[in-house]
């Protein structure tokens, strides 16, 4: 069941939703949002693609195995915790850069952790949704 309206809309919605998910991710530090919701929105974007076309197409658009994303996300999250160990502070102590970036402000390890969560959520959600849709 392919619908012309849905498949055309999905093509335009995908970049918009991804952009929105990154917005949610970056906003999450001080305001409602964060890696989890951002990841869900991004996963929803690819799921929409899978509904509008099929899972194989959605996988091709994603480009990499969602399970690889889980590993990558965990790696980033673990890295954010280990940074403080290297400085002799307890595991997962929050550290921030001195320099304030435009838009982002001071970048710290919590943001890194959130990016890890973002990637893990995309990976887990898409693994499950693709598995459900393919079976």
């Amino acid at each position: 069941m392919t619908s012309l309206i849905l498949s055309t809309a999905a093509r335009y919605m995908l970049p918009l939703l991804l952009l929105f998910s990154v917005f949610l991710l970056l906003r999450g530090h001080n305001e409602p949002g964060g890696g989890f919701v951002g990841g869900l929105v991004a996963a929803a974007a690819f799921s929409l693609y899978a509904i509008a076309y099929d899972v194989a197409t959605a996988r091709r658009v994603l480009g990499i195995d969602p399970r690889f994303l889980i590993g990558l996300g965990l790696l980033v999250a673990l890295g954010s915790g280990v940074v403080s160990l290297a400085q002799g502070l307890p595991f997962m102590t929050g550290l921030w850069s001195e320099y304030a970036w435009p838009i982002l402000g001071k970048v710290g390890t919590p943001l890194l952790f959130d990016i890890g969560v973002y990637l893990v959520v995309i990976g887990v959600t898409l693994t499950i949704i693709f598995a459900l849709a393919e079976a």
């Binding site: 590993g71 965990l74 673990l78």
Partner: peptide, 15 residues
Amino acid sequence: LIVPLATAILTVLAG
């Protein structure tokens, strides 16, 4: 905690 997590990550990435 770190050792098994790192092992899990590496085995995923070495998929």
